[in-house]
Write a protein that binds this DNA or RNA. Structure first.
Lengths: 191, 191
DNA sequence: AACATAACCCTAACCGTTAGTGTTTAACAA
DNA sequence: TTGTTAAACACTAACGGTTAGGGTTATGTT
């Protein structure tokens, strides 16, 4: 799984990193809309096509850091202790994810995202994909035996909790409050 | 509120309608991605700039029909009988909206939307705005006196119900099931 | 009649994104 | 070592959504 990477892969990773770093720096410096892909490419000293060889879109440059979001969510479900109830495990993980997204130093980045419709849309779209992955994980858990609809709804509710908390005055309390609601909703689906 | 519209406004409305109709026809005919804005403009016999004077984006052309979605949702809350409990009223309205979106003849349109990432993203984005409007309506209701977080969460849950049902095998049953969950979640927030 | 302006047109461009077509260079086999 | 292959990258040109700039026409108003 982890062969010592050759020079080629190291160079590729370095190029990718350089592009991402340059982009984020320029975006935070001059504003997301004021920086074009051509600017990023020039500053990173690569061709425009190379940027798109590493990142699917301009928006993707901004969300380089949190790629494992989806994995962490689904693992919170699949890797929890046997017989540990679902909702507290999910609650804990969402709490952790929210802390990460509202951590010291993430302020300017969040402000930039909230300030750009394109970035907000992109983030929502990511969230929906994560909700679908989480729904699949819930549906696959043999201990849970709930309907597909219940799984899908609960997954979306959990993502809602995350989204609301990231923008709330008191993120921690928001996660707790919404998860009290989710707990009740989940119980209402018991077979 | 409703002065008899002059010739000018009538012509404007006619132009808008012609653009929307032409666009939808071409999209359903040849596929959303295969039709460019320049094609729509040419077929509707208007300038490209005129298209964007009436519609904010290419995607907006597709969703011309359901503009009153947001209004219907919030009115279901504000216009309900005095002392009528919130959730059943919301449940009924969402049920109606889902029926509208899964009605006979809406199939091709839905398939087109689901088939285009751009259209899906746009619809999500609309939904989020609707959720915010609904949350505001909930927060403004003097009979409800719930926290802002509870209102926001419930609003998003209701939108989730709509979104899930529109894509479900049995839309009606899906709305009912998710609203059973929402009812429980809402009760859990009682002061 | 004279004016103001809303609605529209045309052109040219900007920007994200992609296709097509080389060129370099790391990885590897002979 | 040398030759081969394929990945990574560069360059150019274009496409499609979107907008700015600047002009024309027709409508409502004085």
């Amino acid at each position: 799984m982890s062969e010592p990477p050759g020079r080629r892969e190291r160079k590729k990773a370095a190029t990718r990193q350089k592009i991402a770093d340059t982009a984020l720096r320029l975006f935070l410096d001059r504003g997301y809309d004021a920086v074009g892909i051509r600017d990023v490419a020039a500053e990173a000293d690569v061709a425009v096509t190379t940027v798109f060889a590493h990142f699917a879109s301009k928006e993707a440059l901004v969300f380089e850091r949190d790629q494992d979001f989806e994995q962490r969510l689904t693992q919170a479900v699949t890797d929890r202790q046997p017989h540990e109830p679902l909702i507290p495990a999910l609650h804990r993980e969402v709490q952790a994810l929210v802390r990460h997204c509202t951590a010291e130093g993430s302020g300017p980045l969040r402000r930039m995202i909230e300030g750009s419709p394109a970035l907000r849309e992109y983030e929502e779209s990511m969230s929906l994909r994560h909700a679908q992955a989480l729904a699949a994980a819930l549906a696959a858990d043999p201990h849970l035996s709930r309907s597909a609809t219940a799984c899908r709804a609960t997954a979306r509710f959990a993502i809602d909790a995350y989204a609301l908390a990231c923008r709330a005055d008191d993120p921690g309390a928001t996660v707790d409050e919404v998860f009290r609601m989710i707990e009740a909703a989940w119980e209402a689906t018991a077979p």
